[in-house]
Structures are given as structure tokens and as C-alpha cells.
Nucleic acid binder design. Structure first.
Lengths: 162, 162
DNA sequence: TGACTAATTGTTATATTATAACATAATACT
DNA sequence: AGTATTATGTTATAATATAACAATTAGTCA
């Protein structure tokens, strides 16, 4: 018996402010709990990453950040990204060199990404079956899995009908 | 009933010349069959990529290529890489921005990579189960899969015992 | 409080990865 | 041979990311 998958692609017109607020709120709580500092730069960066469900490039982030923070430089952004990555508040999409907000920040997880080549939105899955099969098949080569990058390109439901 | 997986990690002292020759030979045949030109630069590039089972960076390739070809520049390498990628003679490891020889160049396939963080060797799997589960789970989100990037980090059998 | 410590941010420079654009040369086609 | 196509040469630059060191800010505790 499988449980229903986590919300994946969002409707074109969903209440995205709710996504942003929820993400910032969770981040706030997680940082408080871990006693790590959710500084202004880190908040701004996370908020910008969550400005859509599309992955954002580091230098896009920098350009946008500069609107509020005149003296931002690459290290400003990369440090914020490092912090957010380390604390699982965001993920890096390796095949795009881009960053997206994490949907399960309060939970240890292994995720897979569905990348729509039509609208460029990304969905994050946290599918135990995928993880399990990968781990099992790797084990058949005697390989001990530590980390997985699974990025799946294709068309989301909406873009299939266009 | 599953069939035994393709050769994955190679023994420390295998006959690597055989790997190189086999790869170049297959490439030769494939290009002949497709009537595309397997030029000197492309051969040299493929040979350098196959110089080990470790992924190689574009600029490492450039440095090495320059030993034989004094005037090589980045486009020289990237064009060769593009050609080899298009014709499935090599793969790009997205999480490393590096390139490895393809083990199944004569066959349409979807592969997964096992990346050993100990010795940096890479194994290529072409596992129908992994592919199937990914496609099936993506379909549960209504997603139509076109392409997969699966890169698994961990320890190869040898490195687990060190 | 104030001095010490650790973490964060500022700043400049540079490394690394990749592509654009246009010129020249080699090959294939008739 | 003449033309078209593909490949390579060459210069410049875009895009992604990190190193190194200085200055500042926040947290600690005598």
C-alpha cells in the first residue's frame, strides 16, 4: 500500500505567497531549534529562491539581491547558498547549476527532482521506492550509497497539453 | 529473473589498454556506420577521456591535449566533447562537470552512475529497474519522462575496505 | 560593562567552466 | 574544378565559483 505522493507540480495560479511564507516560517523555526543564525542576507536569499518554483541561478540571485543590497558580491550569494544547502533549506539542481527551495526542510530525506522543460518548474519528490531501488541495484555492484542526485527532465501535466 | 548487472567497477589492475582499444574501436565502427567523421581531434579526445575510469574535467583534457596539439583552445575541446556527447560515446557527470567514456555506445540506453568518493572511479549501470521505477513514480505526478540524470555517490567495494 | 571569541559579512582578486563570433581550412558532392 | 558543408583556428568574453584577508557583528563570560 503506497501513500499518496507529496504535492508535486503547482497549479498555474496557486497562492504562492503561502508557499513563500511557509518556507520562511519553517526556516525560522529550524534555525531557532538548531541555534544557528538566520541572518537578513540568508532570509533574503531564501525568499528570492522561493520567489517561484523555478530554479534560480546564483548570478540571477545576485542581480536581484543587489536591488536591496547595493554592495552584494558573488561571495555574499555563495555563502548564503552554502548555508542554506548545508541546512537543507534549499537544493542544488546539478544539471542546471541552479537552486530551488526545499519542500521538506524539517525532515531528513532523499529527494528526486522533476524538471519540466516546458515551463521550467520543478517538483521535488521524496520517493522511498526510487531510493530503495537505487540503493538495491547499487548494492548488486557492491556499492555503498551515501548520496543521490536524481534529476528527471520531461513535461509536467500542464505542458503535455500545450 | 534478473540478469547479472553489466561490469561496473574494475579491479585496480585490469588490462586497461583493452578498455581503451575497445572503446576506440567501437567508436570507429559507430561513426563509420552513421557516416559521421571521427576526426583526429575527436579520437584524441575520446582516447584521453578513456585514459582512466575516472571522470575528466574539460580543462584537464585541454592541458593534456595541448601536449600533442600546441594550439588547442577551449572550443577545440568543447566541440569534441559536444560531438562525443551527441553520439553517446561519452557521458557528462553533471554533479562533477566532468566527462567519462560511455560503456554502451552501440546501444540506446539510460544509465546511472556510481561515483566512488574514495578512488574517484565511476561505474556506469544501465539498470532497467531503476529506470522503470523512476518513470512510474514520475507518472504518478502526471509527469512524462524524457531524460534522466542519476548520479550516486558512495564507496566502491574496494574503498569500503580501506 | 567591556574584553575576548567566534561567526558573519565586506572586499578584491582570481580560478574554473563554457560559449559567441567570425575567419580559415578540409572534406564531400556534383 | 566549383560549390556546399562540415570541421577547425582564433580571439574574446560570458557564466559559475572560490581564495584570501580585512572589517564587523553577535555571543560569552569574567
Amino acid at each position: 500500500m503506497e501513500k499518496f505522493p507529496a504535492p508535486s507540480f503547482y497549479a498555474h495560479r496557486h497562492n504562492h505567497n503561502a508557499c513563500i511564507h511557509s518556507a520562511l516560517n519553517k526556516a525560522q523555526h529550524i534555525c531557532a531549534k538548531k541555534e544557528i543564525r538566520f541572518t537578513r542576507i540568508r532570509q533574503q536569499t531564501l525568499e528570492l529562491i522561493w520567489s517561484s518554483h523555478k530554479p534560480i541561478l546564483a548570478y540571477e540571485l545576485l542581480r536581484t539581491l543587489r536591488r536591496e543590497k547595493h554592495n552584494a558580491e558573488p561571495p555574499t550569494v555563495y555563502r548564503a547558498l552554502d548555508f542554506l544547502l548545508e541546512n537543507q533549506l534549499i537544493h542544488k539542481i546539478e544539471s542546471l547549476n541552479a537552486y530551488v527551495g526545499c519542500h521538506f526542510p524539517d525532515k531528513d530525506h532523499i529527494s528526486q527532482f522533476l524538471i519540466c522543460t516546458g515551463c521550467h518548474q520543478i517538483a521535488e519528490l521524496e520517493d522511498a521506492n526510487v531510493n530503495k531501488v537505487i540503493t538495491r541495484q547499487a548494492a548488486r555492484s557492491g556499492f555503498q550509497v551515501a548520496q543521490q542526485t536524481v534529476e528527471i527532465r520531461g513535461l509536467c501535466p500542464t505542458c503535455q497539453n500545450l
